[in-house]
Every structure is written in C-alpha cells, then in structure tokens.
Design a protein around this nucleic acid. Structure first.
Lengths: 206, 206, 206, 206
DNA sequence: TATGAATGAGAATTCATTCAT
DNA sequence: GATGAATGAATTCTCATTCAT
C-alpha cells in the first residue's frame, strides 16, 4: 500500500542484518556476539546497523522473533496436516528435528530462547510462549477427540517441547548421528505411549 | 583432624562466596555476573574474592561443580532407594522438583548448564554429563529387569531429565503453584507410560 | 602510490600516539606509563589507542623500535662520512650528543634501553644490539686500517657507547650546560687516546 | 650508647628485610618487586614489613642506600691502596668487576640506580652521586700529581664509572665469560691511555 | 545514506596499605 | 610485636553507541 521504494530497501536491509545476526549468534552465542561481528557478517559498517536498529539488543530481539515466525509457520503446518494425534506428534517432531538439523543457527537461537535467566528471558519469552501455545492447541484438539489422556494441556506441551529440544541438542553434539527417523520414532513413542489415551494393548501403537 | 582454624575459616569464606555467586548467577545469568556483583552479594570487597579464587571463572566453575555435587548425591540417593522403575522415577522426579523448589538458585544454575554455546559449555558439560550418567544407570538397571521398553538408555535419560527440568522451570514461573505432588505424578506418568514395558491395561498405572 | 587517504591518516595517528608515548615514557619511565597517560598526552581517548595498537606493550615496543630506526640511520650516516678513526669517532659522538640534546625524549628512551632486568630487556635488546653492532662495524673497519689498538671490537663498542651515553646524561642534568663542542672533544679524546694506535707524541692529537 | 636490646633486634630485622629486598630486586627488577615478594623472601608476614619501613618505597630506598654503603667502602679502600693512577684505576676496576660478579644482586641494583627516569631518579641519585664523588676525588688526586691530562674531573669520573658498569653488564650477559683479568686490563687501558698524562712512548704503559 | 573513527563506561585483576586478632 | 585477611584504587582492555564526513 504505502510501501515506498525506500521502505522496501529498508526491509531488505533489516532482513540482511537479521540473517547475519542469526549466523553469528549461532557461531558465538547470544551473549558473545558484538555489533562489529554482525556488521562484518552482513558486509556493512558498524554504524549502519544503527540506521536500522535502535541497539544491539534490538537487532537480536528482532532477529529472534522474526526467525521464530518462520518456525511457527512450519509447526503450524505440521500440526495442520491432520491425522491421529500420534501422526500429528510425529509430524511435529519430524518437522522440528529436521528444521533444527537444517537450520542449526536457528536451533541455537531456539536453545538460547529457553535460557530462563536475567532480563533477557522477558524478551525471549514471547516467541517461546507462542511456540508452546501452538503445541497446547494441538494437544487440546486431540484431547477433545479423546486421543490424549487427562492431564493439563500446557504441561503436556512443555514436556513435548522439552523432549524434542533436548534430543535435538543431543543429536547436534553427536559425531556419528543416528538416522533422523530413529529419533523421530523414539520421541514420538516416548511422548505418545505416555500421554496417549488408554490402550488395550500396546501393540496397536506400532 | 588436621584442619587448622585458618583452613576452616577459609572453607567458610569460600562457601559464602560460592553461595553469593549462586544467587547472582541465578539473578543475572552466568555471563552477566561480575566479580563486583559477587563481592557485593557476599558483602565483601572485590579484591577479597581473589584471595579465595584465582579468577572470576574459578568462582563460577567451583560454584557450579560443588552445587552439582550436592545435587548428584541427592539424585543418587533417590535412585538408590530402590523399588520398581516407576517408584524409582517418582523418587527422582520428586527429589529434583523439591530440590529445585528449595534451591531456586541452584535450579537456575542447572538450567544455565544446558546452554549449549561457546566454551562455557565444555566447562559445564562435565557436571551435566554426570547427571545424565546417573539417570542412564538407573534406566539400564530397570532395562535389565525388563521394566523399560527397548530404546537407547541415553536417549531415555536425556528425555527424562529434560521433562523434569522444563516442568520445574514452568512451576517456577507460575504464581499460583500447583501442588508438588500433582506435577510429580504428571511427570512420573508421562515418563513411565512411554518407556515402561508393555501393559495390559492402563489402569494398573495408578 | 597505493596509499589510500585512510592509510595516511592511520599512519599519522600512529605517529602522534608514538610521539605522545615517547614523551610520557621520558617523563615517567617505561614501566610507569599507563595507557591513560599516553591517551591524555595525545589528546585522545583511551580506547582510541587500541584502534591503532594491539596493546600497551605494542605501543611502547613500536615507539622504541621506530625511534631507534631514526637514530640508527643518523649513526650510520655519521660513520659513513668517513675520514680517520678519530674523525669518525668525533662525528658519531657529535651526532649522538646533538641528537640527545634535540630529542631528549628519545634519549630517555635510549637510557631506559640499558635497563637490564626482566623480560623487557629482551624486547629492548634488539635495538640496543643493533646500535652496538653499528659501532662494532666502525671499530673493525678502523682496526683493519691499523688505527685501533688490539682489543675485542665489541668491548670497545660497548665502552664507546657507554661513555657517550653517560656524558649525555650528565649534560642533561646540568643547568649551565657546557658547550657541546667541549664535550664532543672530551669524549673523542677519551676514546681515542685510549684505543688509538700507538702514538709517538701526544701533541699530534690536537 | 642508648642502644636498647629492642633497638638491636629492630636493626637486625631491618637488615634481614633489606637483604631479602636486594635478592628479589635482583631477580625481578626494581619495579616488579612486590611487598609480598620481599616478605616471602624474608620469611615474614607482609604486615611485618610495615613495622620496620614506612612503605614499599622506603624499603627499596633504604635497601639501595645501605647496599651502596658497603660498595662505597670497597671502592674507598681500593682507591686508598695508593700507587700510580694507573694502578689505582686497576684496583678500582678490579674491585668493582669482582664485586659485581660476586654480588650480582647488588650489581643489578647498581644498574637500576643509573636509570635516570621519573621520580625514582631523585631517590637513587644520592648514592650514585656519592659513588661518582669518590672517583672524582681519585681523579683529582692524580691530577695534582700530574698523572692525568687536563680535563674536568667529573667528566672523567663519569666516563670511568660508565665503562666499568657497561663492561660489567656485558660480562653478566655472556655465557662463556672472559677471564676477569682480561676485562680488568681492557678497562684499565681503555681509561688510562686516554686520560693519562702525556707519554713519550706508549710502550711504557705495558 | 553509509561510514568507521572516536569515545568512555565497565569488567577483570593486582597489590600497597591497614588493622583486628 | 607479628600476622595475614581485607580493602579498594589503579590498570589493561573491550565494545556499544555516537557523530562528523
């Protein structure tokens, strides 16, 4: 609408800086990234960063929230693909572990997000809560269909997210990686056999 | 025995500094703690810190490893109390969530441990790995008794630790806390129904 | 040629900082100069020093070696002007005492060079050794021509340098300075009558 | 007279501390010696140093001046032994080089003394001037006897001291030391052939 | 707009000096 | 007297932020 050419250029710049920020955060860690690092990675001057962002914190904050948007869409799609709760969980787990594998930078950002310390937490929490909210929605939908045993949906969502994250982290640290499918199946089963609705025989969970 | 009065005082001071460090780490995060913070919190001068520790890193490292030792003993005892795997898990979950509740500072330290970036990770990893190793032992013992379904013990341990941690974190952020027992039961069931050996009916999981 | 404007400015800044460093070293002594001192003297901020030099040591090291380069050229030229050994010595003595007079800061730096303690010595030694080496060359050339009596050239060079230095130092501390020529003659004669080849009568030494 | 037992003990302590200071100064250099170093070397507590000296500077200052007293006596005796100027010079050179060899700690102190920088210079100068004054006396005595050619006695004394010092320093840095006698002869000849009264033939200087 | 030089607040560490025991 | 723990000023170096070009 009112998008002038200047604004488009501005958006483009912002994105380039955020992408650079994501890469350096993933390499050096949130706390150890300097504005110079970001500028170098983006191929611009340090001062230029301040034309598009108010401060170092502003860059990192926006980098994280915008990166998370893409992630949220991915998860929303995985959930939206439908199927049984078990299939749904599998899709979510697979989408996440795969995305983590592909976008290690983002994964490190995601991990940093979970850090609950200091004021930083406040900033990060919004995106993280959104992520949990998505999972809560999924759990509640399954609960309505009787596919999930009775337990607070948020607790389940948190447990789910936490297992995926830490298995993802473990995968990242391993040299000889297990096949992605093996871990997807492990996480899916770990989650489902615990929170699935009552079963007559466990065999039907294959 | 051979402990002179001076050594006792020294131990006492060290402990006071470590406790102060734990509090400030829990408030500001590992990376943002300054030596001045620690000194202020301990009610001593900055230079005094250096009478008892070689460097800022030394304080933080020792703070973490000694706190973890206490924690490891707690978990070892919970595991050692025996019983079925289910009972064992319950004891571990209860011990952890209770300890986290009591020692919120330690809990934040424990959380910081999972941060995967930078060299810090290497330092922290030792304690974290020890913790995981304890859980692996527990899982393997249960596996031998056929109480755990077939899956890599380390994956199970990681999943277990991750769920306990994040539920603990969630509890910490909630204003109106749920009863500890409710969350202990939730986590226990979340874990056991997933990794327990095949069951005929879910009712027996009461 | 390929010197960009930025490089010229950089060179200029570096030189200004080195000159400031030289002045403060001459006032406070090598070990007592702080980065703040240098910055204040140069009329810049402390942090600016670090834009042009890696560390405090880097500033001081470069200050000394570059100052010495100029000095070495001066001495080389004095030696190269040729003539008898006696004339040659006179030229060297005169060049040094004059330079010391003009560049008191450098002279103090030169004096600091002789300090024989600690690791600093290693750093300084290179320039000092070069200076001695120049004199050795001069002495050896004269020795070949039979103008110098038989003695280790290095010993002679050291003795020569040491007399020039300390007479220069003495001149610096005196309020009513003797004429430069008087001291040049004194040093020249002190040196030559001792190491010159045998003379029949001293009168020929006018 | 009024020397109480307490005062004797005090003198003893002071001396022990000064001796310790001399050793550490010789190892680490004047500027790098800490009060703790001195206390450790003396086998006493840091605070004890302050019972006998006002400050770190006070220790070092007194250490230097008292060490010099011994040195002054040595030189006075060498001069007092009489003989021709040439013999006298030889005795002084020999005494100094020998003493430097034996008391490397003192030698390093002596070297530090010549450092002309900063306020430290003021403190050190007194002892150094005394040393020069001794040599001036010697030169003047010889001048009266016509053994020295016409030149300012102080200039001669300075030149003399400087050559001895730097040859001593050179000896200290050499691995395979030349015989002491060789350097004594070199310095003696370097000095005498230059400042000796007119000679008919140089051969008589053997 | 873009730059990057300059700034200076802040962090870790050392050490002379004090003072309670 | 003797001790050595405690102090905090001083020092080096880093980096977010500003601003003249």
């Amino acid at each position: 609408m009112a998008t002038t050419k200047g604004e488009i250029v501005e958006q483009f710049r912002c994105q380039a800086i955020r992408e650079a920020a994501m890469r350096v955060v993933s390499r050096k860690g949130y706390d150890h990234v300097t504005v110079q690092d970001i500028a170098d990675e983006a191929g611009i001057a340090k001062g230029t960063v301040y034309l598009y962002f108010r401060s170092r914190e502003d860059v990192l904050e926006k980098t994280m929230s915008i990166s998370f948007e893409e992630f949220h869409i991915l998860i929303r799609d995985a959930i939206g693909r439908g199927g049984t709760f078990r299939e749904c969980v599998e899709q979510v787990v697979k989408a996440q572990l795969h995305y983590f594998e592909q976008q290690q930078e983002f994964f490190r950002l995601y991990l940093a997000m979970a850090e609950p310390l200091g004021e930083r937490r406040l900033r990060k929490h919004a995106s993280y809560r959104t992520h949990i909210a998505q999972l809560v929605t999924m759990v509640e939908a399954a609960a309505e269909k009787g596919e999930v045993r009775d337990a607070p949906a948020e607790r389940i969502a948190i447990a789910l997210a936490s297992v995926i994250r830490d298995i993802g982290l473990q995968r990242m640290t391993e040299k000889n990686k297990r096949p992605l499918e093996a871990d997807v199946a492990f996480v899916r089963d770990f989650i489902c056999r615990g929170i699935a609705a009552p079963l007559v025989t466990p065999e039907e969970n294959v």
